Amino acid sequence: MVSLHFRLSRSVIALGVALTLATSAAAECTRESLLAVANSYLAAQTSGKTDGLKLAASNFTYQENNKKADIAKGLLSQPLKIDLNRSTADTVACASYSMFISSTGSKPYVVGTQIRYNGNDTSSIALIDTIHATTGDLFFNAKKTLDYIQKEDWTDLEASKRPSRDVLKKAGDAYLDMWTDAKAADTIPWGTDCERVEGSQYTRPCGGSLPRGGSAKPNGNRRYVIDEVVGSVDVLCSFDSLGNMPDSHEIRIQDGKVKYVHTITALGR
């Protein structure tokens, strides 16, 4: 009996140690952990080496411009000098969004990437989902885009002034709905000093020269990263209303009004 009790005790202890190790191996989905992985992604892009990324051993997907791709042959395999970058975090969806601009070199880029995980565990990446634009894409000029965006203020909002997830998602959806819904533009809380950067085209205020329906095909395949701390929503999508173009639309709301709009649109080649 004593021997049986001893063996059971050892088994219970071993199980407890195993559970502790499994728990410690997982990384809780916090703002800090999401942004840390986003930084490792940017470092990988700078070096052109992905061995520093903690990719899921199974069920990992790498996607460029809405198509599955080989990470070893994709944009991440190319070392790029990054002139500007910024990342946001969505602890509810356990996802991050990183935007960066590489304006020098033989092939400049403006890139938006969402990173996702299995469950709420940021210890391994399940999806790297990238929209990238380069020379020949819609309104593309990386140096002009850099000049506009580097002047923006993206400091965290005070807790009492942060828009809700619902408000942010509705703004992102309404923006993408403007091409199919004539009333969508009027539901967006435009700021009088809002700045819109579409590729390298600059518009201020944002509420001017907006589409009001006209297309029968909605912009679909929407993937969201919502960050209440900075008041932003990024939506990766297929810009189907104008012809199946891979697209990223990012919106920031400040003091209850839209402050910034960024778009990255590829031509789907």
Rank of each mutant, 00 (worst) to 15 (best):
D181I: 04
T50V: 15
G268H: 04
R31M: 05
A57E: 14
P189G: 06
S58N: 13
G231W: 01
G243F: 04
L138Y: 12
Q114M: 14
T122V: 12
H262E: 08
S102M: 08
S9G: 14
P211M: 09
A171P: 03
L146H: 07
R7M: 09
F60P: 06
Q201V: 14
Y175K: 04
P108S: 14
M178I: 06
T104M: 04
D83F: 04
Y62R: 00
S96V: 05
S123H: 07
A182F: 07
K107W: 06
K81A: 15
G52D: 05
G213M: 06
A133H: 00
G213Y: 06
S160E: 14
A133Y: 01
V197Y: 01
R252A: 01
I115T: 15
G52Q: 06
C29H: 06
C237H: 12
K259W: 03
A216L: 11
C237W: 05
P163M: 09
T203K: 07
A25C: 12
K169F: 06
Q254S: 13
R31W: 06
L19S: 11
D193Y: 08
L34T: 02
I115Y: 01
D156Q: 08
L242T: 11
A27W: 10
Q114N: 12
K54C: 08
S3F: 10
Y148D: 06
P211L: 10
D186W: 05
M1R: 06
M1S: 14
R223H: 15
K170F: 10
Y62A: 02
F239W: 12
V230C: 02
N118I: 11
V111A: 03
R252P: 02
Y148G: 00
K144V: 15
V111E: 00
A93C: 04
I253V: 15
G268W: 09
G208C: 03
P246R: 01
A93Y: 07
I128T: 00
G172K: 00
I188A: 02
P218T: 09
Q201D: 12
V167E: 11
S200F: 07
I125S: 00
Y109E: 04
G16I: 12
E28K: 10
V37H: 01
L80E: 05
D51N: 13
C194N: 05
S9T: 13
R223V: 15
V235R: 00
M178C: 02
L53Y: 04
Y117S: 00
A216R: 10
T91I: 14
L76W: 00
I128N: 01
S47M: 08
V235I: 15
R269L: 14
G112M: 04
D227W: 03
L75Y: 04
D156V: 10
